[in-house]
């Protein structure tokens, strides 16, 4: 009798740990995040991606699932990040009229901003006594994940740590970005999108898209331009910094 119950329990756990179970908990976590966001009237902390990460993180820890197994189970979700990034051209196209008179400010701001992000991260970490490899790991943290990993590898940092920092800074920007811009009195929607996309890449852009199409469009463009600026600037600045 007891054996029957134990066997049944084992079966349940097996199914929950299967690729289907992991895919399901990811989708359910995301839906719960959206529900919570609606319930809280769109409160900034209730970003669906943040809620889902907490739920799924607890879930795979509880069921003792390896992260690599989770990644391969959810490949079909992660796959759509590529086409969705391409799709950022759509809001940009719809808002293209807003580019008039903004191209020069935009390009200068992104390049200067990338340089400030890189140098300040390294110098603050050095002042607080972080070791050399960690300083190098911080250089590309505001770029989108594939760029951050490639740049960090090339400069001699720890790529998996950089990938984690990239996500954390993205989620952080999605939560506090708009409120910080209000404090800074930045009231041009193009500049607002540009600033968040530059420091919090695609996750920041996803928040700006919820706020306003112009902000989302410029955040997406800013993510792309910043990725380019960071990948060019890090090797150059590394000569001076390290």
């Amino acid at each position: 009798m007891n054996d029957a119950i134990t066997n049944a329990l084992d079966d349940v756990v097996d199914v929950l740990r299967s690729p289907l179970g992991l895919l399901a908990v990811t989708l359910i976590g995301y839906q719960l995040g959206r529900k919570l966001q609606n319930r809280l009237g769109g409160h900034a902390i209730a970003q669906p991606v943040l809620v889902a990460i907490v739920i799924v993180g607890a879930w795979i820890t509880l069921l003792d699932v390896e992260y690599d197994d989770y990644v391969s189970a959810t490949q079909m979700i992660a796959f759509w990040l590529g086409p969705a990034t391409v799709a950022l051209a759509v809001p940009l196209h719809r808002q293209a009229g807003r580019l008039t008179g903004f191209v020069v400010p935009m390009l200068v701001a992104v390049v200067v901003g990338a340089a400030v992000s890189i140098v300040s991260a390294v110098l603050i970490a050095r002042a607080l006594g972080a070791d050399d490899r960690l300083e190098k790991t911080l250089t590309a943290k505001s770029a989108t994940t594939p760029v951050a990993i490639a740049v960090t590898d090339a400069v001699g940092g720890i790529a998996p740590v950089a990938a984690v920092l990239v996500i954390l800074i993205g989620v952080f920007g999605a939560v506090v970005g708009p409120a910080t811009l209000n404090l800074l009195r930045i009231r041009d929607r193009r500049a607002r999108g540009l600033a968040v996309g530059a420091v919090s890449h695609g996750v920041g852009a996803s928040r700006m898209l919820q706020e306003d199409e112009t902000e989302g469009a410029f955040a997406g463009l800013s993510m792309g331009l910043s990725a380019l600026a960071i990948s060019i600037l890090v090797p150059l600045l590394a000569v001076v910094l390290f």
């Binding site: 990811t26 989708l27 976590g29 995301y30 995040g33 970003q47 669906p48 991606v49 943040l50 889902a52 990460i53 799924v56 993180g57 795979i60 820890t61 992260y67 989770y70 990644v71 959810t74 490949q75 979700i77 992660a78 759509w80 990040l81 086409p83 969705a84 391409v86 799709a87 950022l88 051209a89 759509v90 809001p91 994940t145 998996p160 740590v161 990938a163 984690v164 996500i167 954390l168 993205g170 989620v171 999605a174 695609g202 996750v203 852009a205 996803s206 898209l209 989302g216």
Partner: peptide
Amino acid sequence: AGSGLLRHLQLFFIPAGVGVVAFA
């Protein structure tokens, strides 16, 4: 299609985001 995907852009970041738990 593009607008449809972008409405759920946050969903596609979840698998990478869970890596935070694994590598914290």
